[in-house]
Amino acid sequence: MIQEAMNEIKRGVAEIIDVERIEKLLKDYFENGKNYYVKAGFDPTAPDLHFGHTVLLQKMAVLQKCGAIVQFLIGDFTGMIGDPTGKNETRKKLDKETVLKNAESYKEQVFKVLDPTKTEVMFNSLWLEELGASGIIELTTTFNVARMLEREDFEKRYKSQAPISISEFLYPLLQGYDSVAMKCDIEMGGTDQKFNLLMGRQLQRTYNVGKEQAVVMMPLLEGLDGVNKMSKSLGNYIGVTDEPSDMFGKVLSISDDLMWRYYELLSALSLEAIATCKDDVATGKVHPKVAKENLALELVTRYHNVDLANAAKEEFNNVHKKNELPTDIKEFSCDGPIWIAKALVDCKISPSTSQSRRDIKQGAVKINQEKVSDEQLQLEQGEYILQVGKRKFAKLKVI
């Protein structure tokens, strides 16, 4: 049973530090019913989670089935500093009101994946505010600047003479101190968090917690472009709160190769079942689109329900196979005339007028299902169905 649990825990994992400790925790649970604590921290810098975040959440859900109490840590204190991981410039600080609002949104979303009866939602302001100035000064003595500059993103910025604030040096120390305060047995994070995760192990040792957390690192899920990690800022994400039709369509838009990565990291199917599906596609027994539809149905069902998933599939087929319009299109109105590029932005189906112009050049923009080629087109009084690509639609009434 322990080996079976370890196999499921290791599925899709990029790296584990201290496997022996995890095996001992599992042994204590299966033989003695003793629970253990798994920490994962989320800085509420945006109100919504995307599928990249759920890679971590789903692994936490697996651990819950194997005796873990998940400590879902919302970094309301550290979120006001901003995690510098992977950043080439100092991040803007968030005000407390925004952080707390985003935190509430997180809490609503995580229980679509995690078992609420085996989850403790925690806020690190509870102990970090109590730490006070003297405690933070003491914390800074546990690590030196030379070691801090070994961190890749800091090293790059230092060499390029880009500014690094002292608060950013504090971030990994404060994240590590979270592990001291929470006395967790395992900490989870993405591969880009390795420096911070190891800091937790070191500080547990420094502060004589009596344990050193094991570390489980998950790979970063590629976004819809198949190149960059999933990110809202890059626009290549699938949001947990996306509408069923949007979620379904986005999954269908990924490449056939990327589909298997999504199956491994997002699907609840066993690795054996996924391997069988992959073989069926490779031999022509199953069309890749059918395999992708099955994945999309599974994911939309998880975050919505089966009826909405089936309705999303039907609408997708109507729009893309029969060239019909979606049944639910958001409506907008404006005074005219209006430039087409601005109209697409105002109707929230394009992020900028420059992107609108690029989409028009590439033939991705339609009005009333007819392609638009004129970048300077002015829309006069009337009603229009605007479309960008295969999934973005809006009704515009020009007054």
Rank of each mutant, 00 (worst) to 15 (best):
K34S: 11
V62A: 05
V110S: 09
K313E: 10
L325G: 07
K92A: 11
R358E: 02
L271E: 12
I9M: 07
I69P: 04
K371W: 00
P326R: 10
M247H: 11
G176Q: 11
S352C: 10
M230A: 04
L63W: 08
K101S: 13
A162Y: 01
D18A: 10
I81Y: 11
R302H: 05
A46C: 12
H53W: 13
Y37G: 00
S356D: 05
Y171K: 12
N32K: 12
Q175A: 01
V372W: 09
T117H: 14
R151T: 10
T117N: 15
N196H: 14
Q387W: 03
E293Y: 02
E331C: 08
F77Q: 11
A68D: 09
E383A: 08
K292L: 13
K321F: 06
S352Q: 09
N310Q: 14
K10T: 08
G12R: 07
T85V: 12
Q175T: 04
L49R: 08
D359S: 11
E4R: 11
L170S: 13
N323F: 10
D242H: 04
G239C: 05
E89T: 07
M259A: 14
Y263F: 14
V319R: 00
M247L: 13
S233M: 02
I16L: 03
S167L: 08
V180P: 00
K321G: 13
I254F: 09
Q378S: 01
V300G: 06
K194A: 11
N144D: 15
T241V: 14
I399G: 06
Q3H: 08
Q369Y: 08
K229Y: 10
K92I: 06
Q376Y: 00
T301L: 04
K96C: 04
V145P: 02
F72C: 10
L297G: 09
E129M: 04
L377W: 05
D185F: 06
N35K: 12
K112E: 01
E97G: 01
E108T: 05
K183A: 06
V216S: 02
K112V: 00
V19C: 05
H320M: 08
T140A: 15
M188L: 15
L203N: 09
A61R: 15
L386G: 00
K285W: 02
I22R: 08
E138F: 00
K390R: 12
A364D: 07
M122E: 09
E152V: 07
E138V: 00
V216H: 01
E23F: 09
Y36L: 01
V345A: 03
L344G: 11
E380K: 09
W260C: 10
G249Q: 10
P244N: 02
K118V: 01
V281R: 11
L139Q: 14
K232C: 02
D307W: 06
G249M: 13
Y36N: 02
P47Q: 11
G52K: 03
I329E: 07
T241G: 01
E150F: 06
E108H: 01
D185I: 03
K10S: 12
M1A: 14
Q64T: 10
G75N: 11
L126Q: 14
L269W: 13
N7D: 13
D279K: 15
G249W: 12
V398C: 03
G284N: 09
P219H: 02
D28C: 07
M230L: 01
